[in-house]
Amino acid sequence: MDSLIEWAVSIFVIIGGVFALVGSIGLARLPDFYTRLHGPTKATTLGVGGAILGSLIYFSWQEHALQLHEVLITLFLFITAPVSAHMLAKAAMHRDLKRMKETRGEPWKQ
């Protein structure tokens, strides 16, 4: 296998893994629900994005043709992640979850 391709795939999957881990560390470590919401909704999306880019390069090289179908997963996650985050934030506000005492501003109750 071309070492250049091998390097590219390796770098992308490891970057993806690092971002996913940081997002999950955020989920485990941050003090209240609203701050926890930030970790997974993005870091994980970029984490999966890295893994998918690696897979895209690997299979395109292996098949000697551009394999774009993996992009659909990333695209789908980029569309859906904000929606789930929004729904979860609304659920949390509805339940009036406690927030960090440093938090400024007030959540709404609709």
Partner: peptide, 9 residues
Amino acid sequence: SLTPGTVSA
């Protein structure tokens, strides 16, 4: 929501 640091609630 996608750009980190902010979530539309």
